[in-house]
Amino acid sequence: MYLLPAIALIGLAVGYPIVHIVEMAFGNVNTFGTIMGPNGFQNFIGLWQSGFPIVIRNTAVWTLGILIPTVVLSMALAYSLSLPIRLQPLFRTLSIVPWAIPLTIVAIWGSMAFNALYGQVNTVLLDLHLISHRVGWLATGKTSLPVMILIGIWVSVPFTTLTLLGGIQAIPRDILEASSIDGARGFERFARIVVPLIRNSLQLVVLINLAYIFNSFPIIWVMTQGGPAYSSATVTTFVYQLAFTDGQFGFAGAAALLAFLVLIGVALGYVALYRKSEGSLL
């Protein structure tokens, strides 16, 4: 009985919309989003013919292009923060900042800072003699996707670093000291002692980041809207564009359904991990 309001709220906000997406995916939907009748797999075929393969490729590049560098960089940062360094609290606080700026604001900043005419990033790169002329970073998918991936890494690192830092700090000190007596130092100890000991934290950040990056919407929508011509669109922005720009609700439903299947897999993996490591609730 205490549960009913929560179930009602979530059912209307998330549950029914998911059912409706399935209906749209297999339905003949007009441009106002009204379902006119069944449509078999026509939406999936239409989706495939309207640029979906490029979108899948972009999504893979976007997700892995952010996930892998984020985890590697965060690992190094977390280990650095765990060392007995001076100013540790200051470094720790500053490293949270990218997480604390609303994503929409980060994206708005990005569309200014990477502008071809007045972008401040161009100014810095010119001053450092890394480029010879101002670059229109957001004009083509070739440069805009990498630029947005860099921003994606920047906003993903703080959460990942803090989680991994928690894992490292849980390692008993004796183990590190024992390893140094055995002659393991620096990078060797990091790779052979620390990394295996925080495997659970690593799996956790990989799964959470996977869902988070895959679903990320504001950066791409604000900076390029997935354009020009899908060249920087991921599944998430593509679904939104199909529905609210192109009025192709059937295609949008089909693409969203395919994405949900992937995400349910991630959710199941997450639950398996949760049961293994904490397991008190589920």
């Binding site: 919309p17 869902a211 679903n215 922005t237 679904v239 939104y240 969203a256």
Partner: peptide
């Protein structure tokens, strides 16, 4: 695990 930008298509 789901994306708000996909949910909104039918939540709308």
């Amino acid at each position: 695990m789901f994306s708000p930008s996909m949910i909104i298509v039918s939540a709308y």
